[in-house]
Simulated assay, not measured.
Amino acid sequence: MKKMRKLLKNEKGLTLVELLAVIVILAIVAAIAVPAIGNIIENSRYNAVKADATNVLSAAQLYFTDEASATTVTVQQLKTSNYLESSGKILDTVSIAKGKPNTITTSAIKFSGDKTVTFTAASMEKINADITKGSDIKTGQEIK
């Protein structure tokens, strides 16, 4: 009998209460982390579209330097002339206007779900000055 009691007292493992406490703690951490990760993803997608626009503007600047008489250039022309490898989400039909500074105008570009960004005569400086977060945009964002 003494041997049996000794064996029962030496049992190791988790009780049901301890297991439930761990599950509750993990659920609380997940409830906090999931929305934060979603916001980070939306911000990254928004910043990626802005980076696409700045890449197109940089390629257009090189094009206008080589082709001094040109006043506009399309993304397709930049790709064909090997000034731009990829335009990301910027459509090939988008036109860049030569000026001081060069500007880009696009239709609405979807970056996450139903969220869009539109560039209206946006220069490199205006795009870089935009501090809006993608997760804060409700229906659409315009950079002009």
Rank of each mutant, 00 (worst) to 15 (best):
D66A: 12
A53H: 00
I28V: 15
N39L: 02
D114V: 10
L57R: 04
V29D: 07
T105Q: 09
K50E: 14
A33P: 03
N47W: 00
V34S: 13
D52W: 09
N43P: 12
G113W: 09
A36Q: 14
A59F: 04
T71I: 09
K110D: 14
D114E: 12
D66G: 12
A108W: 09
K98C: 00
G113D: 12
T65L: 09
T80I: 10
Y63D: 06
A33M: 12
V73S: 05
G38P: 04
Q76Y: 02
G38T: 14
A33E: 08
A36F: 14
S107C: 02
A108Q: 11
A70I: 00
I25L: 12
E85W: 01
K89W: 07
T103G: 01
T74L: 07
F64C: 04
A36N: 13
L91C: 00
I40E: 08
I41S: 05
K89M: 13
F64Q: 01
V75E: 02
S44L: 13
T54Y: 04
L78M: 03
K50Y: 06
V24D: 11
A31N: 10
S95N: 07
A51L: 11
L26P: 11
V24R: 12
S69L: 08
A97M: 05
A31W: 11
I25Y: 04
N47L: 09
D52Q: 06
I28W: 02
S107I: 08
F111R: 11
T72Q: 13
L84T: 08
F111N: 11
Y46G: 06
N47P: 02
V24G: 15
D114C: 01
T93K: 06
R45I: 01
V29K: 02
N102C: 04
K50M: 15
V34A: 15
I32R: 05
I28N: 06
D52I: 00
V34C: 10
Y46V: 08
G113L: 07
V56K: 02
I41K: 13
A53N: 05
A48L: 10
T71C: 05
G113N: 10
T72R: 07
A31M: 12
Q76D: 11
T65V: 06
D114R: 05
T105D: 08
T103A: 13
N47E: 11
S95G: 03
A70N: 06
T72S: 12
I40F: 10
Y46F: 15
Y63L: 05
K89D: 14
A31R: 11
V75C: 05
T106W: 01
A51E: 10
N47R: 09
S81A: 15
Y83Q: 02
D66M: 11
T71S: 15
N102Q: 11
I104L: 04
F111C: 14
I90C: 07
I96L: 05
S58R: 14
T80L: 13
D114H: 06
A60E: 01
